[in-house]
Design a protein around this nucleic acid. Sequence first.
DNA 1: TTGTACGCGTTATCAG
DNA 2: CTGATAACGCGTACAA
Lengths: 341, 341
Amino acid sequence: MKRYSTLKDIANALNISTATVSRALADRCDVNQETKKLVQEEAKRQNYKPNPIALRLQNKRSKTIGLVVPEFKSSFFPMVIAGIQKVMDESGFQLLITESQESMEVERRNLKLLENNMVEGILISITREGENTNLYQELIDCGIPLVFFNRVSSKVIASKVVIDDYKRAFFATEHLIYSGFKKIYHFSGPEILMVSKERKKGFLDAMKKHHLEVTDKSVLTAGVFMDKGFSAMQLLIDKNDIPEAIFCFNDPTALGALKAIKEAGLKCPDDVALVGFSETEIAQLVDPLLTSVEQPTFEMGETAARLLLKQINQTPPPEVETVCLLAKLNIRKSSINTHKG
Amino acid sequence: MKRYSTLKDIANALNISTATVSRALADRCDVNQETKKLVQEEAKRQNYKPNPIALRLQNKRSKTIGLVVPEFKSSFFPMVIAGIQKVMDESGFQLLITESQESMEVERRNLKLLENNMVEGILISITREGENTNLYQELIDCGIPLVFFNRVSSKVIASKVVIDDYKRAFFATEHLIYSGFKKIYHFSGPEILMVSKERKKGFLDAMKKHHLEVTDKSVLTAGVFMDKGFSAMQLLIDKNDIPEAIFCFNDPTALGALKAIKEAGLKCPDDVALVGFSETEIAQLVDPLLTSVEQPTFEMGETAARLLLKQINQTPPPEVETVCLLAKLNIRKSSINTHKG
DNA sequence: TTGTACGCGTTATCAG
DNA sequence: CTGATAACGCGTACAA
C-alpha cells in the first residue's frame, strides 16, 4: 500500500517528539505557538493525514456501520442508501453494504460478516422470506444496535423507520371510492411482511368505512414482482370476475396487472382502474400514467441512519422509537373514473 | 462499542502467552497439539474473532477499496455495485461507496475522502460533466491504482472495463437498416463522454457502410435523461423533420422520445421506430416494448473489481488492460418495420 | 514448545 | 511547554 506520512515523519523532520506533533496538530493550547506553526507547516508539506485505522484501534471504535438490503434491482433501496451515505459521510462513519437477495440464509451470512467487521450498528430491511428474529435479538443483546427500515421486524424491539402504510393504503382506497368506483379489489403483498398486512388493513378498513362489499375474493395475494401481478389479473380475467378498480401492493404488481389488462384487450382506467404503491420512476413512463404512493426514500435513509447513530453515540442509549414518514399519493390517469358524472 | 474477545482474554483464561494463542489459532506446526486444542476450544467458547482493525494497522493495509459512481437513480450502477460487492466479499475487502451526483467537484471531494480513508485502490465511473484528469493521475502516481468502468477517462492510462459501445451501436443501427428504414437519426449523449462518442461513431459508420444519407441534422445531442430525449423529439416534430427511426443514446432518452411521439399523436414503431441502449427494466414495460442494448452490469462490476485487485495484489503491478464486455441487442416491438414487405 | 519484546500510528498521562 | 511511556490487538523474530 501507498506509504503515508506519519506523526513520526513530522517529528523526525523537526527533531521533536511525536507527542508534541500530535498536540500541535490537535491545535491544543498547551503548545508553543512557534512550534505549532512549524508542525502545521511541515504537516502540510508532507501532506499528513491522520491514519483512521490507528485511531479506530486506539479508540476501540470501528467507525463503521453495516447495512443489509434485500435487493439492488429496483431503485428503492439504492435511493435509501444514498440517504444513509450522506449522513455517514457527515459523521465520519464508513458504511458496509450487503445484499441478502431476499434470502434468509444470505441475510444470516451478511449479519455475521458485519459482526466480524465489528460494525457499531446495523441498518436492515428484512427479506420477504421472513425474519431471523433470534439473530437480530442476539446482536442487540451483545451490544450492536439494530435499526429496521421499510421492511421491519414485527417481533424484535428496536428503532424502526416506516412509512405510514396503513394510512396511505386507506387514503389510496378512499381515493378510488371517492372517484366513484364500487367494486374494488386489492392485490396484496407477501403475507409475511408487515407492510403487506398494513396495506391490506388500510384497504379493508376504508372499504368498511364506506360500506362497500368485501368478499373473500376481494383480496388476492400477488407478491412483489410484476409476474405475480400479471397472473393475478389473468386469473380474474379468466374467471370473468373483473373489478372496476384495483389497489395494488406495489408498482411492479400494478404494472403486471396493467400488462394483463392490455393483453386481454381491456383498457385502463376505462375498464379497470389501478393504483400502485412505491412510486417507481416507471409510474410516470407507462401508458396510462400510474397513480402511486410516493415514498420518501432518501429521507428514509437519512432518518434510519440518524436513529442508528443516536443509538450508538448516546450513553445510555435512548429509548427505541418508531418514526413514521409521510408518503404522498400521486394521482394520475390510471385511477381516473371515466364513466363518472 | 461492544467488547470483543481478544488473544489476551484467551491467554489469561489458559494461563499462557498471547504468542502461543496466536500461533495455535493460526494452526501452526510449532505448537503442542494439546495446547492447540485447548486454545481452539477456549477461542470458540469466547467467540473469538481476530480484530480486523488491528490486522490492518499491523499489515499496513486498509483492505478497503473505494468506489465513485455518478448516480444511484437508475438501476445500472446499483447492479454494477452488486457485482463489485461479490468480489470484495470473497476477498475480504471492504467497499467504500460514494456518489458524485454527476458533479466534477463532488467527485473530487469523494476521491479525497477515499484517499483519507486509505483505500488501496479506486473503481470509478466518471461524471458526465467531464474528468478530473490531473487528480486521477496524481492518485495513480502516488500508488493508488484506479480502474475505470463504463464511463472511462480518455486521457489517463489505467485499466478499464467497457462494453463494446462502438460495435453495439453499429449493429443496432444496422438492425434498423436491415429492417428497411432509411431516414435514421441518432440522439446522442453528452459530447464529453467517451461512450457518447463511441456510440455516435458506430451509428455514423453503419450509415456510411450502407450508403445512407447522414446530414448535420441526423445527429442531435440529447443528454442522458428522459426530458432531453423528449425535447429533442419535440424539436423534430415542431420542425416537421421526422425520421423513420431513431437510435438513441440510452433508454431514458428513447423513452422521452417515445413520450413526445405519443403526445403528438404519432405511433411507434409505425411512424417512428426507436432503439434504446442500456436495457433498463423499463424497456420491457413500456408500450411498445423497447428494443435496447443489454449491458452485462453485474459482470462489469465483477470484472472491474478483479482488475483492481490484480493491480493491488501483484508486485510489480501488471500491465494495465482494457476489457471489452459483450453486450446484447434485444429486439422488441419498438423497432419493427410495419410498412415493410 | 513456549514466552518476551517490538512495531504498526495514534493519543493520553505523567513527569520534567 | 515538551518528552517519554503506555495502551489499543495482532503477528513475529528472537530468546529461553
